[in-house]
Amino acid sequence: MGRVFVEQFKEFLGKIAGFLPNLLTSLVLFVAGLLIAWLIKSVIVRLAAFLKMDAVSERTGIVQVLQKGGIKEPVSRLAGRLIYWVVLISFIIMGLDALQMPAVENLLGTFLLYLPNVIVACAIIVSGYLLGNFLGRAVLIGAVNAGLPIAGLLGKFVKFTVFIMAVTMSLELLGIGKDTVIIGFAILFGGVVLALSIAFGLGGKDAAKDYIDRMLREKKEEDDIKHI
């Protein structure tokens, strides 16, 4: 009885002894990850400052977008922080992998397979938001300069359509309610177009008539001014 207990204890100690190097490796990787992530973050922040990333972001409208989302940090620091976490998470994953525990390995495998989708989905949403804003603004300005009274509506329509399309693509990529989202989007988009057509065709037929009349009249009454 005592010998069985001793054998079991020895086996346990053997496993612990076998596991300790893995644990140590894992801890070393974690600490190294912390240091390297901090180092890379510092380099990125300085490089971003050298490349005037904050000024460029302000010019391209990225800062305004982030501010609307409640993020007030400079883009250079944000980029540094993002890189910090990517590097640190990579080291944590390596550290967990170094533990060589089957349950952790399985979990990691699943997580790692899904992670790229999450990153790409986030990138699509951010790009969709920026592109939506950009195109919406371009359409708004173009429509105002063309004298279209529905310029504001057109600008918003383009902006939200692009954003909703980006969200739909992201959700599809993540596999969340795959078919439901696509069908939902199609119904919503088709519905909006149909509703607008009906509203314009029936409800706003007089307004549409007035508008077309005015357009034709103004076409006839074009200026002879030479601007240049």
């Binding site: 004298g147 103004e218 009454e221 074009e222 200026d223 002879d224 001014i225």
Partner: peptide, 9 residues
């Protein structure tokens, strides 16, 4: 005389 559509402007 030059045609100018002031109302449109």
């Amino acid at each position: 005389p030059v045609k100018v559509n002031i109302e449109r402007m």
